[in-house]
Design a binder for these strands. Structure first.
Lengths: 242, 242
DNA sequence: AACGTAATACTGATCATACCAGTTGGCAAC
DNA sequence: GTTGCCAACTGGTATGATCAGTATTACGTT
């Protein structure tokens, strides 16, 4: 059974890579090695096709894949340009699929809400540690804006999101900021209500105010505890508290 | 100026969508509406091309994009199959770009480490809440395995990762598990050492043991505090403690 | 009839070519 | 100098052919 009369079979399947994938690798390496600087244009499809000695479809698929990954921008008529990559790029690229996963399985929405709460709990802890006077001032400004918008549901929620995003920015970590923004946008898409706004704007506002005070005092434990109550108000996730 | 002799001009530039994108939308809707069940095959490129009345390149680009997104599998010779989507799909799709972002900007690696620590802090809190006797037993088993592998660095780190992943599983949230796995794999890729294994295996092990005890008692605050020290040992991120 | 092998049909992968549709830039007319 | 048109890029699409795998079918052997 294990006789391999032909050497073809014993090479397993190593060279099975598609042509366009090899082109993709070459281009990705060129971008990664800064041979193609972010912001400037790439060679045209026809130029690349000649350079790599492959047909246009191979080049095209590779470029298209790069575009899907958010690494380059493709516009009809112009030459393609290299994008700058950041944490936000990764999240942006995942955006559409993430929305699909959420809308396909409602259970995942609950899981995301849960994950968001957990994430926010860790975030507020760091934010309380690192809070500067400027941070606190900004939070107070957003809070004042939210007070003004009490009548307008949409504006109120937007200010609420701004509050939480500002908290994320206090971590001085772009990855955390990007994740927080992405999570909030996904939740906003499906459930306006779950952004802990359940008709009791006054409670939300007073909790925010208290939280700002705790953050100003760098009381991480207090802020975490308050945030836990704050978020648990709109969804009973932490019910198993010992 | 606002005369619109032709209805084409008054639509500004809305219909600029590429043909392949429209095909992509149609296919995505078909998958999302379960018209194409996960696990079964899709129509062939030629069939789709006839069905939508477009050329083969359009169909092909759409399918390729679906493949890049991880929604379908494409194998040479066979018909394409629809994949099942989950939280892991999103992370898997982001994997290669995430690695690029990390390797491109070393600062992002620090940010990821920071984010991981924050994430883990929130995670351990939930895990301590929800811990069951089975969870604790599994943690003890992994811990015992890690003790046995003290001599072997690779096996030791792998057991360490298993420990943290098992903690993530205790949240009973697939999104959290997927994110934890992805983060650990990214960190493992670039810095074996930062998985809080800095030559002091004995300290790591004793901290793990203490953590298991705290989890068993559902002492969330204690577990969070310990994990904070545990993770801070390998990187000075929470230095700004008040 | 049962089985194995080889021919066949169908699939995706790649290429070549042509043409359409935008953008850009230069050239000529005003 | 400004304006407007045209030519030369660019990417987008279509067509058709060919190559390379896979699955199926049909045939011949036993």
């Amino acid at each position: 059974m294990s006789l391999t009369a032909k050497s073809k079979t014993d090479q397993d399947k190593i060279v099975r890579r598609k042509l366009s994938d090899q082109v993709l690798d070459r281009l990705r390496d060129m971008i990664l090695s800064r041979e193609l600087a972010p912001g400037d244009v790439m060679p045209s499809e026809r130029a690349l096709m000649e350079r790599f000695g492959v047909g246009r479809p191979a080049v095209r698929e590779a470029l298209q894949s790069l575009h899907n990954s958010g690494l380059i921008s493709i516009n009809h008529g112009e030459r393609s340009r290299v994008n700058e990559v950041s944490a936000a790029t990764v999240l942006n690229q995942s955006d559409s699929i993430a929305r699909m996963v959420l809308s396909a399985a409602p259970a995942n929405l609950e899981h995301l809400k849960h994950a968001r709460q957990m994430f926010e709990l860790g975030m507020i802890r760091v934010a309380a540690h690192k809070a500067t006077t400027g941070d606190v001032a900004d939070l107070r400004a957003i809070h004042a804006e939210q007070v003004r918008e009490m009548g307008n549901a949409t504006a109120f929620i937007e200010a609420d999101m701004k509050f939480h995003i500002r908290l994320a920015q206090m971590t001085q970590n772009p990855i955390i900021v990007s994740v927080a923004e992405a999570m909030l946008s996904w939740l906003f898409e499906y459930h306006l209500s779950l952004l802990h706004w359940s008709g009791k704007e006054d409670v939300t506002l007073s909790e925010h105010a208290t939280m700002i005070d705790l953050i100003e005092q760098h009381d991480a434990d207090g802020a975490v505890a308050l945030m836990e109550r704050h978020l648990a108000r709109s969804a009973g996730v932490f019910e198993a508290k010992a």
